[in-house]
């Protein structure tokens, strides 16, 4: 009898919970949702910093999580095109379908860089909507945060004030932090760098780093010996100072180029959790700036 009551109690308690289930496709937007919503949200991140978000599989656990989500926070700009559309369609969850308030795309909130003039797979894994790795410009994070807090308030009107307050507090901290990072990173301006993949377009744009080449011959195509050789030759004319990669990219190609040229191979956290220091969004940028400065010394 008591068990039955407990069960009934549990069932009755379910609809009364105000928590929103947020399904974020990547760790950076999961972290942003946590900053804004705090304990009002239950946030699930579909990927970790060690997983290439382009190449995730629509595994059963993702379907189960999407089924229960009230809001999907996607990076957008085709980053998750290999798995997210399938997860959304097969989730049987009407609320999170594209076009509904329960589907949010971060990249749609900002101006994208590298929007290709020609969309042709001969150019590799190009994104028609532009480079999707928008979060490494912290000013974009603020824009996404503003739109996300408005969306959360729309979905969960009861906690709207909390989301607005959460965003306002975050924005104040963030603006101060951005000013600090920009000041710290001032010596990096104009520094030529190589990158593994076009993951750092927005970071470079923000800090004024100059990307002089990518280890991937085409986006999404693994580095080849001949392409690395060409980069080495290019080093004479356009010398780069360091080579950047994310935690989910292999270190071999970076190390090879670093070994041949003497430039440092720099692992950047890229997203929350990519390094032990990048515990949250501000940790991500603190660590990114520190690692760049250390390598530039």
């Amino acid at each position: 009898m008591r068990i039955l009551f407990c069960l009934l109690l549990a069932l009755a308690a379910l609809p009364a919970r105000a928590d929103l289930n947020v399904f974020a496709t990547v760790p950076e937007w999961a972290a942003l949702a946590r900053e804004i919503g705090g304990d009002k949200l239950r946030v699930y991140s579909a990927t970790t910093a060690f997983q290439d978000p382009h190449r995730i599989e629509a595994r059963p656990s993702l379907l189960a999580q999407a089924r229960r989500a009230d809001l999907v926070v996607a990076a957008g700009a085709d980053l998750e095109t290999a798995w997210l559309p399938l997860v959304l369609r097969d989730s049987g969850n009407a609320a999170i379908q594209p076009g509904r308030p329960g589907y949010f795309e971060a990249a749609a909130q900002v101006r994208r860089l590298d929007v290709p003039a020609v969309v042709d797979r001969a150019h590799g894994d190009v994104h028609a909507a532009g480079n999707p790795h928008i979060h490494l410009d912290p000013r974009n994070v603020l824009k996404v945060g503003e739109a996300l807090s408005a969306r959360l308030a729309e979905l969960d009107a009861a906690n709207a004030a909390a989301y607005r307050a959460g965003y306002a507090a975050f924005a104040t901290r963030w603006q101060a932090a951005v000013a600090r990072w920009e000041k710290e990173a001032a010596p990096l301006k104009g520094m030529p760098v190589l990158v593994h993949h076009a993951s750092f377009a927005y970071l470079n744009h923000w800090l004024g780093l100059v990307e002089v080449g990518a280890l991937e011959p085409k986006p999404g195509i693994e580095p080849t010996a001949s392409h690395l050789g060409a980069l080495l030759a290019q080093q004479q004319a356009k010398p780069a100072r360091m080579v950047l990669r994310t935690a989910y990219q292999p270190d071999g190609p970076s190390r090879w180029i670093a070994g041949k040229t003497g430039m440092p191979a720099v692992l950047l956290p890229y997203t929350v959790g990519g390094t032990p220091e990048a515990k949250d969004l501000s940790g991500l940028f603190d660590d990114t700036v520190q690692r760049l400065l250390k390598a530039a010394r």
């Binding site: 749609a108 909130q109 900002v110 101006r111 994208r112 929007v115 909507a129 532009g130 410009d137 000013r139 974009n140 603020l142 824009k143 603006q175 951005v178």
Partner: peptide, 12 residues
């Protein structure tokens, strides 16, 4: 604007 941030891309 208080921040010189990048504006959203025009719709397709």
């Amino acid at each position: 604007q208080p921040m010189p941030a990048i504006e959203p891309a025009p719709a397709a």
